[in-house]
Design a protein around this nucleic acid. Sequence first.
DNA 1: AGGTTATGGTTTGATCTCAAACTACTTGGC
DNA 2: GCCAAGTAGTTTGAGATCAAACCATAACCT
Lengths: 188, 188
Amino acid sequence: MTSSRGTQGAGVKGVKSNDRKARRSKSQGKAGGVRRSKSGETNAGSIDFGPLATWVGFNLRMAQEATFQAFSHLSQEVGEGPGRFATLTLIARNPGLSQTELSQATGRDKSSLTPVIEDLVRRRLIERKRLDHDRRAYCLSLTAAGQKTLASLMRAARKHERNLDRLIGARDRTQFIEILKKIAAGMR
Amino acid sequence: MTSSRGTQGAGVKGVKSNDRKARRSKSQGKAGGVRRSKSGETNAGSIDFGPLATWVGFNLRMAQEATFQAFSHLSQEVGEGPGRFATLTLIARNPGLSQTELSQATGRDKSSLTPVIEDLVRRRLIERKRLDHDRRAYCLSLTAAGQKTLASLMRAARKHERNLDRLIGARDRTQFIEILKKIAAGMR
DNA sequence: AGGTTATGGTTTGATCTCAAACTACTTGGC
DNA sequence: GCCAAGTAGTTTGAGATCAAACCATAACCT
């Protein structure tokens, strides 16, 4: 029963939820409203975020979540999520990579990679061979099918990045990424 | 058996892993090395990230992960993770909040909130009362203990933000946050 | 009123992730 | 050669999260 865990596909998170679409339309009036006890705050978008509003950590989380969802949505038709995408890209650019290296590059624990790799192998998107000189390690590479899938994902990703660019503004983009990199590199 | 799931504490992710500390010290030389098949790339930090390097999504994820880990580490002694922190802060600033509102403010599904709230109530950090005019909804507020815990978390958070500031540079900080907000708001 | 529709919260089932324990192979010292 | 220490991957156990299905209450409509 070892395998059969990381079963792609359904994994795409960001579709939409029954409840959410109706959002807060009338909850405003008198009905579902909750009415903060303090002063006269209604409740629509008027929640007081306090210090959260200006903290990097919180905003980082919200932004990340949002892009993640958006990309999931885009890549849904391809049948792979954001995680698989990074994995495939890295294998493509670095054929012969080991799982440990891959996990370090994507910032995930090597153990989280096991089911993912298993799944990708099973679906013949990547290949995995033992090394001659080190029978412990694997050596990963893309199959032709994997390259095709990656190409589709790449198209979705470009679209996604264009959307982001529209929000960020091409001017600030480089600096923005620079900061993100500094954070990723520095916070450990 | 309904409850007992969201059991704080152990939830703090970012401690450190046996394997990780030894990181890449000698894997460089000849031993554990994997040797990309291509040209002469060694393998330490020399992985080719290809387009990932300049994509917002990926860098956002890496940065978020890093700060998350760092804050987990800091708040570990308090015994609450980053998630609980946002939750407590929002309840503190908006007493009477409902769970749905809370989940929307933190960007999580309302169903993920159920165990968290349950746990916080069980440990008497928050209180939960039914509303008179709407017997479905709850109305959340902090207890005195909750306020104390929040204060500790706040100290950890301030330290954390100072660390981030050092990386970002106070000058760019405002703009950085602005962009994060735009992304969070725009990508849905 | 009585039924339909909406809404707050919980349950359930799936995925993802981490961390620690474990197995198999490797290296290095003796 | 043999044993101790290290390293690659896997297993296992726990938590977080989402989404859809569900229950209970509330609002709306005729």
